[in-house]
Nucleic acid binder design. Sequence first.
DNA 1: CGAAGGCTTGATAGACCTCAAACACAGTGG
DNA 2: CCACTGTGTTTGAGGTCTATCAAGCCTTCG
Lengths: 258, 258
Amino acid sequence: MSHAALNPLVRRFETIISLSEDEKKAILNLPVRVADLRADADIVREGDRPSQCCLLVEGFLCRYKYLSDGKRQIMAFYVPGDIPDLLSLHIDVMDHSLATIIPSKVAFIPHDALGNLIDQNPRIGNAFWRDTLIDASTFREWIVSLGSRDAYSRIGHLICEMFLKLKAVGLTNGNSFNFPITQGEIGDATGLSTVHVNRSIMELRKEGLIILEKGRCTIPDLRRLEEAAKFDPTYLHLTGERRGGNGRLAGDRPSVAP
Amino acid sequence: MSHAALNPLVRRFETIISLSEDEKKAILNLPVRVADLRADADIVREGDRPSQCCLLVEGFLCRYKYLSDGKRQIMAFYVPGDIPDLLSLHIDVMDHSLATIIPSKVAFIPHDALGNLIDQNPRIGNAFWRDTLIDASTFREWIVSLGSRDAYSRIGHLICEMFLKLKAVGLTNGNSFNFPITQGEIGDATGLSTVHVNRSIMELRKEGLIILEKGRCTIPDLRRLEEAAKFDPTYLHLTGERRGGNGRLAGDRPSVAP
DNA sequence: CGAAGGCTTGATAGACCTCAAACACAGTGG
DNA sequence: CCACTGTGTTTGAGGTCTATCAAGCCTTCG
């Protein structure tokens, strides 16, 4: 009864922990309901009390909130394999919304089924928890961007992030990838006006750091873009599972922890 | 063998879930090492690989990161009862630092002990997970602040947040509370210069929304401040544990979820 | 072919930053 | 006991980054 829509989830886990056959089977046996959604469709909305989570199978999603003055703040973008509303397992009321930004395929998985999966497979539960922690880590990096970086590197930073996230799930093609996010949406994500987003992109282009056309982005030289945007990928924690570990990196001076 | 430093943790849990005697005992039996730290002391630092978590018992902490240009971005403030580095249970390398902002008392709990506690008390594990999700929710709200609010309401919003967080752990006194955060630190948190923070605070004062002096803050009329800062406390999820629940709030139009 | 959405560019305005300096207050040492 | 120092707050003036308003252009699509 396993559903192909669950493959991205298995693939994602396998980049982090090695799944046993039983674990793999447990995931693939999750009950799912797959839906094909148009662009700009809300999946969950502020105030909702979801009873299921959604796994993005194909497409792009964003997490956003509207303010009383009509401005929209996008707080994250998601790529296939992500489960952006995993948080609804433990938090009852949504304080923001999730929506597609292009036509997308999502798989809905009931909370009950996820709860059982986690109860019976603690390692999977930990991987889910870890996933939400990396989400949080990305939020923190956006705080840094919005608080401390200028428009130019804010946008460069976002492009680096998207590239690495897509690369991690095998959705890049060499140094280029689908980037169907409009300049208006980039503005909503970076806290900039569309006009200024455009001017900053023009600059990034002029520097030869990005090639952006027709929903596709190419990064001729990732190192140079990372340097320009002061991008450090540590916060994405792409390198795999934590295991034990109490070593400390050498520091110039010790912190108070022993 | 139970240590008084763990009481804030028990108290915190009890505002969320009702603990059984066994659960309470399990928490109070956690091995801890308590430390009294001076102001501006790093607890964990970017690059560290912690083998323990820290519970804030008394004082104030912040989460921050330095940028290459010397700017500091503060990403969160913490109050007694918080365990800001719970994430280190599942994420090996710290991508930012934690520090005291005033002299503080913290209790260090080894990862091993926390892991055992969680394994043997799934409800406690879930409460911890939920805690990190609320942390993430707060990060998202900061993204909204930095991306979409002006200086005036950004600062007002922060003050509302601090007030409610302190009130939830019983550290307010009527409508006033200890607020030992300097204007420079507020600037590092809100992405504003010290000068502009000061000017905005002056305005908030002039409007009679806050009284701020000698490390103490009073909010004469919380409703009015919330209104001015467009503050909605939903994101703090102070109302307690999620349980089952699949109801949906009435919405004007349905989202795609069934 | 007209409409709609997205991209691009120019001009003006405003929010916020930087530099600078004065003031207040607590802690330190002679 | 009183300078002295350091940290934090406050205020002024000028400059910059980014927003807003406006308009033209391009592509897609019914």
